[in-house]
Design a protein around this nucleic acid. Sequence first.
DNA 1: CTGTTAGCGCATTCAT
DNA 2: ATGAATGCGCTAACAG
Lengths: 343, 343
Amino acid sequence: MPTARVVTLAHVAAAAGVNASTASKVLNGDAAVRVGPDTRARILAAAKALGYRPNALARGLRTARSHMLGIAVPQLENPVFPEIILGAETAARERGYSLLISHSGEADGDARLYEALAAVSRVDGLLVATLEDEAVLASALARSTVPFVVINRKLEGIANHVVFDSFAAARVATEHLLSLGHRRIAHLAGRTEGYNGTRRLAGYRAALEAAGLVFDPSLVVAAGYTVEGGEAAIRELLGRGAGFTGIVAATVLTAAGAMKVLHATGLQLPSQMSIVGIHDAAIADMLHPPLTTVRLPLREMGSVATHGLIDLLEGRIGQVECTLPIERLVARQSCAAPLGSRP
Amino acid sequence: MPTARVVTLAHVAAAAGVNASTASKVLNGDAAVRVGPDTRARILAAAKALGYRPNALARGLRTARSHMLGIAVPQLENPVFPEIILGAETAARERGYSLLISHSGEADGDARLYEALAAVSRVDGLLVATLEDEAVLASALARSTVPFVVINRKLEGIANHVVFDSFAAARVATEHLLSLGHRRIAHLAGRTEGYNGTRRLAGYRAALEAAGLVFDPSLVVAAGYTVEGGEAAIRELLGRGAGFTGIVAATVLTAAGAMKVLHATGLQLPSQMSIVGIHDAAIADMLHPPLTTVRLPLREMGSVATHGLIDLLEGRIGQVECTLPIERLVARQSCAAPLGSRP
DNA sequence: CTGTTAGCGCATTCAT
DNA sequence: ATGAATGCGCTAACAG
């Protein structure tokens, strides 16, 4: 497999009749270099004519900057992660960086996770969007030799992070149901220990209390972030016999799982049961009925984290701490006024 | 931002009291080197003790192999691509390669696409899963300086590709409906010019004809590969008034779009209309009713393409040409016997 | 204004 | 069985 003829800086310099270092300065737009306009033109012309492409490896070796970023995600099945990656990849490209992907899979135990992170070697920095247990993640990250920004959660003792306002997301979702007249609203929570889980639960509760309702723990079930979790949780809730007419689901997958069970139960959506999901994934609009959601700035989260990481790397800033506002509620057909309310 | 102390080969060599070149040979398991067992042990121990990690950039510069692969995908919104990426990333990691991601977005025109590919510079090879027009893609690829494998389509004049059996996928889907007693089966086709589109159409038609039915062009509409395309196509079909009781949808997104319209129309699924989708994405099970699908070897396609590309790179093989069999039909609740059939 | 020199970290001849 | 020397392609000091 003969690699195609590769044009090096030396070729360009030779063609332009200058020294390689001069060509390097000109091509890199080194501001501190004063060079004759004709020389500059010759170099540029030669580079273009020869189709010169700098060797990123050599440059990286010399400058100790690979211009590559790694992103660690737990999985690709949940649409949350492709969205984050999309934002990250776009931002990275804008800034002249490439994005190396690594999915940690079912990594448990920090050694395994650390391996996944280390596999993303030769990167200048790391974007971390995994779902590990706090302690495990912190321990793995403590060994990192490069700067990193944590996406989608705040970690005790770790400065750099970009999150969105999970509290507001749940509050807005709950308020929507409240405004429709619902008074008994259940919450299919995420992981009630995690950052997002606790914030969402708090947002749900705050909305309830602001409306003068009392928080009823029997209306809350931890459902995780999967379809199966949603199914199990709604069954549990239904089994408890604690009447409710609306549901705030922690994610769109949780909502989908709940809807499967509700359909099986024969309950009519939205007339007999309303549901709001948090995360406006494409699937929300494919569910039946189309799911009302809170649109989350996931792409933006990836993008902001990436710009922040690069700024960090380049010494422009010292820290990345950002909480993005949620976008808005997207009303579809999964919510209606509760049955009992006046018509 | 002081980069953490970095251990080089020289450090290891010094610690072991040997020359760097010796350490290099031992650490790389160079077979042609005979080295004293104690020396070898000392080197290995020193490397481990110091936590030596070879500098991938330096190694790449020296060997002219970056051990990085690029994957170009058109988008991340369609779950097809994350699945392919997952397979590719896993395979790459198994072989000691990293995966650099690049989404070409709405690239049209080969210059733009070429830029996207070139952005994935510094890679040893390229995995190409874009959706471009044949000519555009071929023209962009012609400029590639590295070997590539095309995923999910065959291209005129381009040898290396990994596809799945699109013909069989559509045939199996159609046969399922046939076996249930359907006789008027519509096809929401993909892009009827593309590789997959034509193969699927052919598979659909073959199944029909094998069952002694005549192919009716008025039952086929090009729907592309999006939800909106599915919606438009089913409306078109319904508008034609050509009666049918079953639908073979080119993708799960197409099927989801069709189902939205069918629900809006008030048709009962599956009692009044059956539907099968091609591609067993996670969403299939979240639709209502859960969608019967043909499971496609997407992850495997990514994995096989990646192994093939690496084999190509390493000179183990000369060509990658592979058509993967489909996995199987996954029956859910979107199909039933047609109304007219005996009970 | 431009050229010279040096070296990033590694793998690879070729000598011992 | 090991070491010395060389250079991959590039950029950064420093000369001139």
